[in-house]
Design a protein around this nucleic acid. Structure first.
Lengths: 354, 354
DNA sequence: GTGAAAGCGCTAACAG
DNA sequence: CTGTTAGCGCTTTCAC
């Protein structure tokens, strides 16, 4: 680890080869380690590398054919806990398989998502992982299918993580979690507790995740023979503020609701805040549940009953699936389970109790 | 956007050149756009690129001399809100300057941090941004200084974001925020409210961030002529669980504490939980403050009084500084201010009030 | 304006 | 086991 006084340029394999009195390929071989090299020469080469403070040039390596060792993941926004935990899974698995992570954000803009995928094509990432809900329209699906094919053609993989498949024949891998089931289970839980007027708060129109959660909500009502007032499904984004504002409005508009199913835990935080301000106790006066089971959910007052989503595992599986696929595995779809976590934010409805 | 039926290989500049009836350099020139090309030829080339669905190979480009257009940022863990918000700033600024982001995590392990910086050297990232507190010991500083020099020599920049300089003469950029000032201000706030026995909860020994916050805590006490009982500074990590466990222990050990200064907002969440379980009201029976001002802080019960840190701006400035520096700017250090945000978790101590 | 030639740093065939 | 010879895809000189 001696200081090299050298000029501005970095040493190359050639320099190392010269210093060690061998040829460039030999240096390359000790670098790769997957080829027999005499212990003596190997030592000399290693020595020279240390002396020159040599580091390979990843780009040259990538060009020359050796694989890129890079996976890309693209999310809406890193600060959302949902994405953050998936990102952690992705990063961990990638690191443990010797891959680097490229991170891109789209801020919910499909145009930017396309642009980003194109960039990843330039980077020749081994896998491009698209995280979170997708836009459920044909134009979008077709364009993305195009990218899936393009990536596939150049030996790369598109992974849809937490979003639905692009259809038969599109070369994309899917790592899903059971939105419908989780939502169904939670709704059934509320229904079983005696609630009959449940508000679903935070429907992002056209977003696959949201649509699936609402489907579970609907099905549970149907299976329990409870008629669902469509006006109880309130549109809104998946943020704290939306939960807050929508709850305020809901409270102003009707007083028969006994439970609120928030589209995400973040939404639920806003709901709880609004209720607290109005002096409405949870769960005595109103039951509140969320979706995601982000760590904060357990720390809220009251601790939030919610649907657990295996975020980290989702991220990990996305990377594994893509890398295994490159090695010839046939699996192209994984669905992880979800389950409800009962804490303190649900009670039977008020009127039934008194 | 027509489908190209081609084999498994990607089209290259040569292919495009052939299809357009020009030479490879010409294609390169329209790609770069920074060189005069006849409108007619440019059109032909553009056309050919579309037809072949051509995308440049970022590695080949990187090799041939054009800059890498990549910044790396390395954090402890993406799921920590502190890091997540800085990450968002970094990513946004990078994207807006046409750069890609490489994300690496270290899980608080210095060894891994060194390994990661080495990897970034291979990648030839334009900037390597190290985020969050650093280990305040000489061996660490020396090794990192070595990397700073190595990066500098190859035209790249090391940026220390939210951590102290490595010393004079080390070619590293620094983007800091005022830990000492924020902590001082908050402590003064508590002292002014009448608190005399304040517990500082969550000291990560040897971590620069933690040390600085405690320094502010000390100074404020000194300036206000209040003697500080060293046993009131409790060691612990910056997590929810630590806040919870330490508070439990604190409560069991002494009953003269009237305010708790949590090392971070996350720690404060744990503190609030423990107090709630014990039936201790905040702020009536105990004042609680945090550090960071993560968005959740405003949603807690009660809303948390805390020190605001400009996370996103920190990330953005880190990228800007590095990129400007490459363009010849002289600045190598930026310090952003912090300030306290008063919400509902502080009140005068109980005994004074009654 | 555009083409021809050369080379970025590395690895993958082949020989020997 | 190791050296020689090519070539990855792109961008640069430098001529024309």
């Amino acid at each position: 680890m001696r200081e090299t006084s050298g000029g501005g340029k970095r040493p190359t394999v050639k320099d190392v080869a010269a210093a060690a009195g061998v040829s460039a390929p030999t240096v390359s071989r000790v670098l790769a380690g997957n080829y027999p090299v005499a212990p003596a020469t190997r030592a000399k080469v290693l020595r020279a590398m240390k002396d020159l403070d040599y580091v390979v040039n990843a780009h040259a390596r990538g060009l020359a054919g050796a694989t890129t060792k890079t996976v890309a993941f693209v999310v809406d926004d890193v600060t959302g806990p949902f994405y953050a935990y998936i990102a952690r899974g992705v990063e961990q698995q990638a690191a443990s398989e010797g891959r680097l992570c490229l991170l891109c954000t789209t801020h919910g803009d499909p145009e930017r998502e396309f642009a980003v995928v194109e960039l990843m094509r330039e980077q020749r990432a081994e896998a491009v992982i698209l995280v979170g809900g997708a836009w459920d329209n044909e134009v979008y699906k077709e364009r993305m299918a195009y990218f899936a094919k393009a990536l596939d053609k150049s030996g790369s993989h598109l992974v849809l993580c937490g979003r639905p498949s692009l259809g038969e024949g599109v070369p994309a891998l899917v790592v899903q979690y059971d939105n419908v089931g989780g939502s169904y289970g939670m709704t059934a839980h509320l229904l079983s507790a005696g609630h009959r007027v449940i508000c679903y708060l935070g429907r992002e129109v056209g977003l696959s995740t949201s649509d699936e959660r609402i489907e579970g909500f609907r099905r549970a009502h149907a299976d329990h023979g409870v008629e669902l007032d469509e006006r109880l499904i309130l549109p809104g984004r998946f943020q704290i503020d939306d939960g807050y504002a929508l709850t305020k409005r809901l409270l102003a508009e009707r007083d028969d609701v006994t439970a609120i199913f928030a589209g995400t835990d973040m939404v639920a935080i806003g709901v709880l805040k609004a209720l607290r301000e109005k002096g409405i106790r949870v769960p005595e006066d109103m039951s509140v549940v969320g979706f995601d089971d982000i760590p904060i959910a357990a720390e809220l007052t009251p601790a939030l009953t919610t649907v657990h989503v295996p975020h980290e595992q989702l991220g990990r599986e996305a990377v594994r699936l893509a890398l295994r696929r490159s090695e010839g595995a046939a699996t192209d779809r994984i669905v992880l389970g979800t389950h409800i976590v009962v804490r303190d934010s649900v009670a039977p409805p008020r009127r039934q109790r008194s």
